[in-house]
């Protein structure tokens, strides 16, 4: 039993390492992301704040509100990118190779999800630091809580993207589905506007209230500006938001694991 557990953990470690090591392939990619995120927060966010004009309490402006939303949206995009990568692995036959290895499907699924989420979070770290620097100094506990909640969110998003790729099994359709999801979910969330604004259009509000992006963006806002931005949360109680994020990551990880364990076969990639 102990030997089995040790072997499973070793396999899990190797799978996580496989994804994490790939970070070093993305030097140019991350450099470009950092560059356009800098433009987004240094130019777009600055001007759009002037367009809004409205303050969010004594210390916070729309700029503070938007920066945390912008980080949420970039983390979502980077994490969904794991799906593109897995689609590429399908094209290159790497997934078939992995399915043929003497590794339990469950370990394979969990390993890829944890590895994918760790590397996504690391890839988003420069943007996280830019946001922290622009917002000003904070307590280490607040920064740590924000990092942990962001990681929790990326676990759920990797689970989601893996499930979609394995379900669609097509490079082109995956490309389009992710593009559409990205554009719709970012706009139908509290990334750009407070939940009270979404409430003015009920169909939009219902999507926003079940959208994980709204929960991470608002949870980060509550962590850094509890008295100012805490009034505009998607749920009145921050504990509910945290439970949602926890439920999201556990349920999507479970879904992807069941999917890989029960339904996935090699081949059939379009």
């Amino acid at each position: 039993m102990i030997e089995f557990l040790r072997e499973s953990l070793r396999q899990l470690y190797l799978l996580i390492l496989y994804d994490v090591r790939k970070i070093f392939r993305y030097k140019i990619f991350i450099l470009m992301r950092v560059a356009w995120f800098t433009v987004q927060v240094g130019f777009f966010a600055y001007l759009i704040t002037a367009v809004v004009g409205q303050r969010f309490g004594a210390q916070a402006t729309y700029y503070h509100f938007y920066l945390l939303g912008a980080y949420t949206s970039i983390l979502f995009t980077i994490t969904m990118f794991r799906g593109y990568e897995i689609a590429q692995e399908f094209e290159e036959g790497v997934i078939e190779y992995m399915l043929s290895l003497p590794i339990k499907r469950r370990i394979l699924a969990i390993g890829r999800i944890l590895g994918g989420s760790i590397s996504s979070f690391f890839l988003s770290l420069p943007m996280f630091l830019i946001v922290i620097i622009l917002l000003g100094g904070f307590e280490p506990i607040a920064i740590l809580s924000a990092a942990l909640s962001a990681y929790l969110f990326s676990i759920g998003v990797v689970g989601l993207s893996i499930s979609i790729v394995f379900l669609l099994k097509s490079g082109d359709v995956t490309d389009i589905a992710f593009g559409m999801m990205d554009s719709l979910l970012v706009r139908l969330s509290t990334v750009f506007y407070p939940a009270t604004i979404l409430l003015s259009f009920l169909p939009y509000y219902y999507v926003g209230v079940s959208n994980p992006l709204s929960y991470l963006a608002d949870f980060l806002r509550w962590i850094f500006y509890p008295s100012e931005l805490g009034k505009y949360l998607i749920q009145d109680d921050p504990a509910k938001i945290l439970f949602f994020l926890l439920g999201f990551s556990i349920s999507l990880t479970t879904l992807a694991t069941i999917f890989i364990e029960k339904r996935v076969e090699g081949g059939g990639w379009k």
């Binding site: 002037a50 367009v51 809004v52 004009g53 409205q54 729309y62 490309d175 389009i176 593009g179 559409m180 554009s183 719709l184 706009r187 139908l188 750009f192 506007y193 407070p194 604004i197 979404l198 003015s200 259009f201 939009y204």
Partner: peptide, 23 residues
């Protein structure tokens, strides 16, 4: 279809909602 969705989302979601908070 993906591109159209993105542009329409900008117009009928982002612009409509953002209109409520602009100066």
């Amino acid at each position: 279809a993906g591109l159209i969705t993105m542009n329409l989302a900008d117009l009928f979601i982002f612009a409509v909602l953002f209109n409520r908070i602009v100066n």
